[in-house]
């Protein structure tokens, strides 16, 4: 407070971590890994009614190099898992991951030979969403959880 009064009007003081966290949290560009049914709800999440741009996430980037948040929507088969992992590896740090729906989280109803029983077998997941498929509201909720997580991270100090 003291510093602000010394600097005069037009300045605020904050910690760099908070500023970076705030900026990152409100511009998480998703990489939509739309595999199955959940992808349709993910489209609805970006569509007119649910409007993900309120959270700064309307820019769906299909290029992993430009995105921060991997949304794995749908069951992930063993054959696909290699491609998903490769895309995750291609994303630049810092990055986060949402397992959308029961199939991506645990294999869900697809308890059979073709499906990986939960993408956390080969990916670090930050937020899980239940539901088959979850409503777009639930995806928004997961996005907000990720935003909370991003805001409270100590990114700059640890990076230095």
């Amino acid at each position: 407070m003291g510093l602000e009064s010394a600097l005069g009007e037009g300045f605020i003081t904050t910690r760099v971590d908070d500023l970076v966290g705030w900026a990152r949290a409100n511009s998480t560009w998703p990489m939509p890994m739309g595999l199955a049914c959940c992808a349709i709800e993910m489209m609805a999440f970006a569509g007119p009614r649910y409007d993900a741009s309120r959270f700064g996430s309307e820019v769906m980037r299909f290029s992993p190099r430009q995105s921060d948040l991997l949304i794995v929507a749908g069951w992930c088969s063993y054959k696909m898992s290699h491609a998903v992992r490769r895309i995750w590896d291609q994303m630049p740090d810092p990055k986060w991951c949402i397992a959308m729906g029961a199939c991506a989280s645990t294999g869900g109803m697809h308890r059979c030979y073709g499906v990986v029983q939960g993408i956390d077998n080969f990916l670090p997941v930050d937020a899980y969403i239940s539901g088959c498929p979850p409503r777009p509201d639930a995806l928004l909720n997961a996005l907000m959880t990720i935003q909370e997580k991003v805001k409270t991270e100590h990114s700059v100090l640890l990076d230095a």
């Binding site: 898992s81 290699h82 992992r85 590896d89 059979c112 030979y113 077998n121 990916l123």
Partner: peptide, 21 residues
């Protein structure tokens, strides 16, 4: 078997792929 035969099909490694990252 419905659940498949364990190990019959590969999962990706969970260490980052150096080439891709």
């Amino acid at each position: 078997p419905l659940l498949g035969i364990p190990g019959s099909i590969d999962l990706p490694t969970s260490t980052p792929d150096q080439e891709a990252s």
